[in-house]
Design a binder for these strands. Structure first.
Lengths: 185, 185
DNA sequence: TGTACATCAGTGAACGCGCGTTCACTGATGTAC
DNA sequence: TGTACATCAGTGAACGCGCGTTCACTGATGTAC
């Protein structure tokens, strides 16, 4: 049955929100269109009134995840939130880049472009408030520091041993938090 | 038609080798049993004479990838190989942890356990020859350094902009290579 | 404002395809004598 | 060593299931008068 324009917009928002969580939790391939629609409180047939295809949904979901102002946290504050058991255990609500990075390589060029933009924007923002004597040093610390966060989160999620998993988070956080180094060359 | 025992063992080896490359390149889900068998020069029906199921193949493939003596490179030497465009562009022959880490979370506990073992062994080995004043410092540098390698490789693969992609590799390599820091607390 | 009708968002059955898995068959291997 | 037969690795057709997508239909919305 037909619904109001406002309700239709709300449905679209709910579909994107459900997809955002489900994709991060299970990856693009393992999530079905019917599953997303059910999580949004709708039936699968209506999906194609909102999106052209599942690929379209993926691209739109990524666009939405990376939309918005983004945090203004500095590198070390971001790491202090990023490298926690809470974030590790919350794939559905956590960093989309860590959760879906490799998956995106096998998706459309549009999806990959959206991911790249997400990476670039985040690094640019973190670099504003990073340790370092000058912009080049700040940027280098941010690029490497963010890479370390993503890697540590992925590795700590892989690890079924809580000790190793925790060590990855803590050691990497300490590493990023320690005093900035000058170039060793 | 029946083949000799030696040929059958060789077939099994080829299946595992083909699976190792295909899984790293495309992920577990996107690779079909028929595709693996074709890459091994066989037909799909014979697969179940070698493995119980596709899940079984995944676990055996991971076991094989992490078998063997492993490299004796130190942390910085490993990073110098790891963080290169050649490695970035060679998913099929590169680090299985970076290529399949997140994918493994959605597989069997056996597969995840094999991945964890791979992570642990690699870190233990790299820590032997890492910068630092004592074992604790060496370990911390290794854990964070390896996390940074994995993250940088994943991010540089995501990035469709060659400049950003290269920056991720280079800045992270410089970061790992720079003089070890003492704890800042 | 009220009424009649066109529009169209959502429903759920159905379609088509691909994939994991099974199975009857083939023919070379391996073995018993 | 040679022969007859049992074994079984590999083949390719077929099965069953799940998923993306389509479509006829429903009934509430929105609009023209």
């Amino acid at each position: 049955m037909r619904v109001t324009k406002e309700q239709m917009a709300e449905h679209r928002r709910r579909i994107l929100e459900a997809a955002g969580h489900l994709f991060r939790e299970k990856g693009f391939e393992a999530v079905t269109v019917a599953e997303v629609m059910q999580a949004a409180g709708l039936t699968h047939g209506g999906f194609y009134g909102h999106f052209k295809s599942k690929d379209d949904l993926i691209a739109e979901t990524l666009a939405q995840v990376f939309a918005g102002p983004g945090s203004e946290l500095g590198l070390q504050e971001y790491a202090a939130w990023y490298l926690t058991p809470g974030h590790r255990d919350n794939m559905a609500g956590g960093c989309a880049i860590a959760a879906l990075g490799n998956d995106t390589l096998r998706q459309s060029p549009e999806a990959r472009a959206k991911m790249t933009e997400g990476v670039r924007r985040l690094i640019d923002r973190l670099a504003r408030n990073a340790p370092g004597q000058n912009d080049a040093e700040k940027r280098r610390a941010t690029v490497a520091g963010y890479a370390a966060m993503v890697g540590a989160l992925v590795l700590s999620r892989i690890s079924d041993d809580p000790k190793l998993s925790g060590e990855l988070l803590e050691d990497t956080r300490d590493w990023i938090s320690s005093a900035p180094r000058t170039r060793a060359d």
